Simulated scan of single mutants.
Amino acid sequence: MNDNPSRRKLLLLGAASAGLGMLPAGAAPAHSDTTAAAPRLDVPYVPTPQQVVDRMLALAKVGKNDVLYDLGCGDGRIVVTAAKQLGARGTGIDIDPVRIAEAEDNARKAGVDKRVSFKVGDLFEADLSGASVVTLYLLPTINTRLRPRLWQQLKVGSRVVSHAFDMGPEWPPKKTATVEGRTLYYWTITEAQKKKAKA
């Protein structure tokens, strides 16, 4: 793959800076079943350098027995890298069909299309229960909205890695790392979180 922007994220804030326009306060996340020619993107499609991708996967210790879900997968770089370099299986989810088509093409070119899949979908409706690792690059507002879903659906011991943004004070990271001036955050799902999600 080349150095084209590697990921487009679902976020409710920050869109104005990319000329996409700010959504009204309290606006619902975009859904994949919209009838418009192009989906409404809640955040611009932004690049994740390959060095950051590699460090995210290393931080989560992704291996051949893992199933990685990348939320807001863009061109599929994280999923493809995990499959090609580490032997993992993976699923990428993105609301933009153009990005999903690009990700599928990249997987074919890398020879890992039998190990990965990509879906057009809404992160807040996706079934994440099959993942042992979840990667994401989302703003804090979206991270905190996703947090209960991660606690509910992921198994104890599953790992979560976020590029640039944390999950709020209710879920401090287990580890952090810095690469290319960017902060990465790492968590594992615990029994305590599962209990909180059920409460």
Rank of each mutant, 00 (worst) to 15 (best):
M1L: 05
M1C: 01
D3F: 04
D3L: 06
N4Q: 08
P5T: 11
P5L: 14
R7G: 05
R8N: 14
K9V: 07
A15N: 09
A18L: 07
A18E: 05
G19D: 09
G21D: 06
L23K: 07
A27N: 04
A27R: 02
S32A: 10
D33C: 04
T35H: 12
T35D: 15
A38I: 10
A38F: 13
P39Q: 11
L41F: 01
D42A: 15
D42W: 15
Y45P: 10
V46A: 08
T48N: 03
P49K: 02
Q51P: 06
V52T: 08
R55T: 06
A58N: 08
A58T: 11
V62T: 13
K64Y: 05
Y69D: 00
D70V: 04
G72Y: 04
G72D: 02
G74N: 08
D75Q: 03
D75A: 07
R77Q: 07
R77A: 13
R77G: 01
A82Y: 07
Q85F: 02
L86H: 09
G87C: 09
T91P: 01
T91W: 07
T91S: 12
V98E: 15
R99M: 09
A101Y: 03
N106H: 12
A107D: 13
R108W: 01
K114P: 03
R115Q: 15
V116C: 11
S117I: 00
S117Y: 00
K119P: 00
G121C: 10
A126R: 03
D127S: 00
S129M: 07
A131F: 11
S132K: 08
V133W: 08
V133S: 05
V134R: 03
T135I: 06
L136F: 05
L138M: 05
L139I: 13
L139M: 14
T141D: 15
T141H: 12
I142R: 10
T144C: 01
W151F: 08
Q153M: 06
L154Y: 00
V156S: 02
G157H: 10
S158C: 11
S158W: 05
H163Q: 12
P169K: 15
E170R: 03
W171K: 03
W171E: 08
P172H: 07
P172K: 04
P173E: 09
P173G: 12
A177R: 08
A177V: 02
T178F: 00
V179A: 05
R182D: 09
T183D: 14
T183F: 08
T183P: 07
T183S: 14
L184R: 02
L184E: 00
Y185S: 01
Y186T: 03
W187D: 09
T188E: 15
T188Q: 13
T188W: 01
I189E: 11
Q193G: 11
Q193E: 15
K195Q: 15
K196E: 15
K198G: 13
